[in-house]
């Protein structure tokens, strides 16, 4: 964003990722560089297979780049750590733990005392509006509720960066808009650096300060769009002409990429 002097949080530097497959080498990411500022909300859109998840995994430390580096607060990323929280599309809750114990999982690993952990769990379950379900098991929750637990779990360890890989991808449209609004409120209240992957252009625009459009084969950044719509935003924002202008532009770019892939 213009005139933005927030400190740099995540530096992605010339990241290349190649996979060895049976049909030879496959280049998933071909020189991706991106700077993300502190408390910035960045979304990534692009056709399926363009390397969005691969990039997220590399930032998370779950995968290693073939070339290039990722730095968080100037420190090179070499392995996963609680400074980078991840929310997965498939919720990834531990089914044998109650909602409360799921949220507590990262806290106990961090060595947070039981009493304090309990308070934090309460706080974050309240944040996602699930206080009443502390003792429930994941199988007793709907998809939207599961994803709320996963978000609470990621927030509880207080990461500097929140990485989300199509977190609302498996939800119905209504639940999805509801969780978008909740995420917006949460993000405005408790600011975090967010890296958010989605297929949904509208979702990207409503949430983000910047939208990164990726192109496929091999995965590269095609365009970065600053979304100069002031916060707080809500579902009404989706009706403004500004919003539609951004949405149409990005949608067109993504659609072109999609056609490229189809060729």
């Amino acid at each position: 964003m213009a005139g933005d002097n927030r400190p740099l949080k995540v530096k992605i530097e010339n990241v290349v990722k190649k996979f060895a497959t049976r049909r030879g080498e496959m280049v998933a990411l071909n020189g991706v560089s991106l700077d993300i500022k502190e408390n910035e909300f960045v979304s990534v859109v692009g056709p399926s297979g363009c390397g969005k998840s691969t990039l997220l995994n590399i930032i998370a430390g779950l995968a290693e780049p073939t070339e290039g580096h990722v730095y968080v607060d100037g420190q090179e990323v070499t392995e996963p750590g609680p400074d980078r929280g991840v929310v997965f599309q498939q919720y990834a809750l531990f089914p044998w733990l109650t909602v409360e114990d799921n949220v507590k999982f990262g806290l106990s690993l961090k060595g947070v005392k039981d009493k304090e952990a309990k308070k934090l769990v309460e706080k974050y379950l309240k944040m996602v509006d699930l206080e009443g379900f502390a003792k429930s098991y994941p199988k007793e929750l709907s998809g939207g509720m599961k994803q709320r637990v996963a978000i609470a779990r990621a927030y509880a360890v207080n990461p500097k960066v929140l990485l989300m890989d199509e977190p609302f991808g498996a939800l119905d449209a209504q639940t999805r808009t509801q969780l978008q609004s909740e995420l917006l409120v949460t993000w405005e209240k408790e600011q975090k650096t967010c890296f958010f992957i989605t297929h949904d252009v509208e979702e990207a625009v409503i949430l983000s300060q910047r939208v990164v459009i990726m192109s496929a084969r091999p995965g590269r950044i095609k365009e970065i769009v600053d979304i100069d719509i002031p916060y707080p935003r809500d579902q009404e924002t989706k009706l403004t002409s500004e919003f539609l202008k951004y949405k149409n532009h990005i949608w067109e770019q993504v659609y072109r990429e999609y056609l490229e892939v189809r060729k």
Binding site: A60, P80, P82, Q90, A92, L93, F94, G106
Partner: peptide, 26 residues
């Protein structure tokens, strides 16, 4: 489920924690 292992790792679990707290219960 490898996503559960990933989820544990990003929450700060090391191999030993993953074994005791994820692989065994799963």
């Amino acid at each position: 489920d490898t996503t559960l292992i990933k989820a544990a790792r990003v929450l700060g679990a090391k191999d030993r924690n993953i074994f005791i707290r994820v692989v065994i219960p799963a």
